[in-house]
Design a binder for these strands. Structure first.
Length: 939
RNA sequence: GGGCUCGUAGCUCAGUUGGUUAGAGCGCUACCUCGACACGGUAGAGGUCAGAAGUUCGAAUCUUCUCGGGCCCACCA
């Protein structure tokens, strides 16, 4: 039964089929790997892609890395789990759906909470499926049986449990504090959800009224309606005399007092050096107000409009309208001194770019500085969340790759303030808090103004008695993402467990796979997510969420710009997969990129790796064909034939002694392969993915295809070695390019899937050792083999080069005379290669040394001299010789300078000096020969 | 304002702890059908490693500064 192997690899035809085979095999689930209980564990939580829309290149790169690690570790015999999932991404998803219904002319209020959430869930269901299918397209070997979603019952339950636990430990509190408010989202934001945008702004210099002694400067005149103080620097001589004074002003919203206070934070050089303090609408001012016991007047409401406290003239106006109006008022009353244009950094919402209003509000917070002690938790012994999160990275319990991001992490952690976790978003985990007095929570305004009452219930389940209403707020999406590594591993059947502690302690997966081995993600969510996971997990479990953090870069276009749909420079990964195959796309993400550095993507790159994948395909095609041809067995049953061949223990070559093996080329390639196995393993163990991939590619293309396979066509009967090398290569390359390797593997070995093939090690994969069973093989001997073969390679290259230079027709044969010196034996033994590897040598004569030959091209390779007879072009030859001599002389001069330097000879390691000496001698010798030849040519 | 990062062939990038005449891919030039591969083969051209100073026997690699990109953080109102 002959097999037809297509000429070019066609990923479209095989990828889906292979993925299906993998899924059916069950090997994505570590429970099916047939490993013993004590097998080493490897686990990755897939950073949940937002449940909004489709897969982009950022996801593709994340999937490529994670799959690479998972497959590698699975092949290493570990119990490898890659747990997939999706995140509900509250604000992002809600905003998206709001935009969709806006197109229908509706708002969420038109639909009402319940209907709106139905709509959101439908949307999420849809995009989740899209994302899942696209994840499969990438070849991701994640365990779909353990797939999770942040709003699953089990995960939601865990969220509530953690909330209550933190509340009981007094790490969650309800506070009335200034928060970042997005008027568009109508919700609070965490500090790091606020972005900054540089812009020009008017800085107004003015006085509150004519009698006020100090001119102040502001970019937000409308907030002055809420001022209760003016702050100056205590060192400022201009204002010292006013400190402590209290003035009464009226901007049209009733009289209020302005106290002159001193604060070191005030910059004397900015504006007038005097700052109008608006406690309710600025973080800094709020702190000053706390210190100085100032009144806080809230004049801007949650809708972004001025409220009653702003006065009749302003109530109901938007912030910008109010600004215009009050500036007009100042102008009319001649209070403005000047207006200056300044650069300002405007705070905007990271989801919708709306300017943020800082305002006071009653919200739920996580206390990051509160020191606590938790029984049985090795971290929390009179420590705060912040301290513990800091320490686990400091003492390397968690390693960040690349290391430099530790600095960023520390800096961020040090400056972390209490984390506001309640959001006025509808979509998400509702805060597990119930109130008796429903009116107290119905709208924000009244809630903020009402006194905090004791009619409150906090628990994992709703209170049993009647009359309670749950808080309408939901939790920050990062609160649930923060527990992702372990909430996903909890046994989803909570009923089996009595307490939360019991649930944590006795969930089998959690016990087995946590802490996860590595967290692989983009550096852009180091703070959002990574920091939160560390914080929440050390607290809840008393262990770190992961042992390593591998941060990949952002994917950019060829010009280094961020990819975005609106800009039109985005590359759709699915389109690339359809065109070039998932393997090619994966390689183009991995090779040429280093951790923490951005990666530039463009189509030609993917095309290049598609070519490589195809090259590998054709290598296998050749080997299959060669096997059929060389096989004495008339029954060309590839499968059974190859089953025998790839099994090392059955190595027929050694047993039957069919031909004199190994040849120099065999030893060379097998030694290279052994080195490759060693280096790639080391690279992968140390997260050097790019280098590992590059090495595999180089070996495959340059050494194996371009040299060894060509040699095999001459030396013949190498099907077993070829098979062996290919087999090892497929294993090494599989984590990088799973589809094509599995497909080729299928052609060679129908019984097992490559996905669970054992990762090779130098020792147990060593065909070279088997072949050379009598000779002791050590590193030195093998390296000598390498250099020896490289001499033959140089000779062949030099001859080809000469032919091209002299424009000898490819079909024309030439004769050669070789003076080989002490390499006579070597040259004789490898003459079949020198003659046949596209050098076109016909007759040859090999001597140790001899007379110069006229009318022949002359080559010197090391100490071997070669004359190519019949190649005459005196002028050309002279020119070439002269050029070579010039270069060589320059080179020799450089070495001479080195060796002439006593300091070098004395201080440099002996090896280096000897190496230089040897180079010097060889070069001198070569120079002498070249010069003689040049002279012999005459003028 | 603080911090990080990059600047190596026309383009995109490698270059582990300082030690080969600095590498690869794409592109470019010439030639090629040789038992798999034109998504291929062979050969070649192309770089004072941004600039300056320093450390060292020796620097693309370490230090400092300058110039030029990029990113992150920060309550200059």
């Amino acid at each position: 039964m002959k097999k037809e192997v297509p000429k070019a690899y066609n990923p479209q035809e095989v990828e889906d089929k292979i993925y299906k085979k993998w899924e059916e095999s069950g090997f994505f689930n570590p429970d099916n790997l047939g490993l013993s209980e004590d097998a080493e564990k490897f686990s990755i939580s897939m950073p949940p892609p937002n449940a909004t829309g489709v897969l982009h290149l950022g996801h593709a790169s994340m999937l490529a890395y994670q799959d690479l690690m998972t497959r590698y570790n699975r092949m290493c015999g570990k119990s490898a789990l890659w747990l997939p999932g999706t995140d509900h991404a509250s604000i992002a998803t809600q905003t998206k759906v709001e935009k969709i219904i806006a197109k229908e002319g509706k708002t969420k209020y038109d639909l009402g909470r319940e209907k709106f959430l139905e709509r959101v869930n439908k949307y999420v269901e849809n995009s989740k499926n899209t994302i899942k299918n696209q994840t499969r397209k990438m070849g991701s070997s994640c365990d779909w049986s353990r797939e999770r979603y942040t709003l699953d019952d089990g995960l939601s339950r865990a969220v509530r449990e953690v909330f209550v636990k933190m509340y009981n430990d007094k790490l969650i509190y309800r506070g009335d504090r200034i928060v970042n408010w997005c008027p568009r989202c109508e919700s609070t934001l965490a500090d790091d959800e606020v972005e900054h945008k540089d812009q020009k702004a008017n800085l107004y210099y003015f006085k509150y009224d004519k009698n006020f002694p100090i001119t102040i400067a502001t970019t937000r005149p409308e907030t002055k309606l809420g001022d209760t103080a003016v702050a100056v620097n205590p060192k400022d001589k201009r204002y010292k005399k006013y400190i402590g004074n209290i003035y009464e002003i009226d901007l049209g919203n009733g009289k209020h007092k302005i106290k002159i206070i001193a604060d070191r934070e005030v910059e004397m050089k900015f504006g007038t050096g005097a700052l109008g303090v608006t406690p309710a609408h600025s973080m800094t001012d709020w702190e000053m107000a706390e210190k100085n016991d100032l009144e806080k007047i809230k004049i801007i409401g949650e809708d972004g409009k001025m409220n009653a406290s702003a006065g009749k003239n302003y109530e109901g106006l938007t912030v910008l309208e109010a600004r215009e109006k009050i500036v007009k008022y100042f102008q009319e009353n001649n209070l403005i001194e000047k207006v200056e244009e300044v650069d300002q950094s405007l705070s905007i919402c990271y989801r919708c770019d709306t300017p943020i209003e800082p305002l006071p509000s009653k919200q739920w917070f996580v206390a990051v500085d509160k020191k606590i002690t938790i029984k049985g938790n090795k971290y929390f012994q009179n420590k705060s969340l912040k301290e513990v999160s800091f320490e686990v990275v400091k003492n390397k319990e968690i390693k960040i790759i690349p290391e430099r991001f530790e600095k960023t992490y520390f800096h961020w952690m040090e400056n972390l303030r209490d984390w506001c976790i309640s959001r006025q978003i509808w979509f998400g985990h509702q805060v597990p808090v119930w109130y008796r007095d429903e009116s107290g929570i119905r709208n924000y305004e009244s809630r903020i103004n009402s006194k905090f009452n004791n009619e409150i219930y906090i628990g994992v389940e709703s209170p049993e008695s009647e009359g309670w209403t749950q808080d309408k707020d939901t939790l920050d999406t990062w609160f649930s993402s923060g527990i992702w590594t372990f909430s996903t591993l909890l046994n989803q059947d909570r009923k089996k467990y009595k307490t939360f502690e019991d649930w944590i302690a006795n969930s089998p997966d959690l016990k087995k796979f946590h802490p996860t081995s590595v967290m692989e993600t983009g550096y852009d969510i180091l703070f959002f997510w990574i920091a939160r996971m560390i914080l929440m997990t050390t607290y809840t479990l008393g262990e770190v969420p992961f042992e390593n953090i591998y941060l990949h870069g952002m994917v950019r276009d060829k010009q280094g710009r961020k990819m975005s749909k609106s800009f039109g420079n985005g590359i759709d990964p699915i389109e690339m997969i359809e065109k070039y195959g998932a393997d090619a796309l994966r390689l183009s993400m991995i090779i040429g990129s280093s951790p923490g550095n951005d990666i530039k993507m463009y189509e030609e790159k993917v095309e290049g790796y598609r070519n490589f994948v195809n090259k590998l395909w054709n290598i296998s095609r050749y080997i299959i064909v060669a096997c059929i041809k060389d096989s004495k067995n008339e029954k060309d049953d590839l499968v059974s034939k190859n089953k025998k061949i790839v099994k090392l223990s059955n190595c027929q070559i050694v047993k039957e002694q069919k031909f004199s093996l190994p040849t120099l080329a065999d030893k060379w390639i097998l030694n290279k392969l052994n080195n490759l196995i060693e280096e790639v393993t080391d690279d992968l163990d140390n997260y050097r993915f790019s280098q590992a991939g590059e090495k595999i590619k180089e070996f495959t293309w340059n050494d194996f295809a371009d040299w060894y396979i060509e040699v095999s066509k001459i030396e013949k009967n190498k099907d077993e070695i070829l098979n062996y090398i290919l087999k090892q290569l497929l294993v090494l390359a599989h984590p990088f390019i799973p589809f094509v390797t599995e497909e080729i593997w299928k052609n060679f070995n129908a019984e097992n899937l490559l996905i669970t093939e054992k990762w090779p090690s130098r020792r147990d994969a060593d065909l070279l050792r088997l072949l050379c069973n009598k000779d002791a093989i050590n590193g030195d001997a093998m390296n000598r083999v390498s250099t020896t073969f490289e001499i033959i390679q140089s000779i062949i290259t030099a001859i080809r080069n000469a032919r091209a230079e002299y424009k000898i027709e490819p079909s024309k044969k030439i004769d050669a005379v070789i003076y080989a010196g002490n390499k006579k034996e070597l040259i004789e033994s490898q003459l079949h290669l020198i003659k046949n590897l596209r050098t076109g040598i016909d007759k040859s004569e090999i001597k140790e040394k001899g007379e110069k030959i006229k009318d022949a091209a002359y080559l010197v390779i090391g100490d071997v001299e070669i004359y190519l007879l019949g190649m005459v072009d005196k002028e050309k030859e002279k020119k070439n010789l002269q050029k070579e001599i010039n270069e060589l002389e320059k080179y020799i001069k450089a070495i001479q300078a080195k060796l002439g330097n006593d300091n070098f000879v004395e201080n440099a390691p002996r090896e280096i000096v000897n190496k230089e000496r040897k180079k010097y001698q060889e070069s001198e010798e070569k120079l002498r020969k070249l010069k003689e030849k040049l002279i012999s040519l005459g003028s």
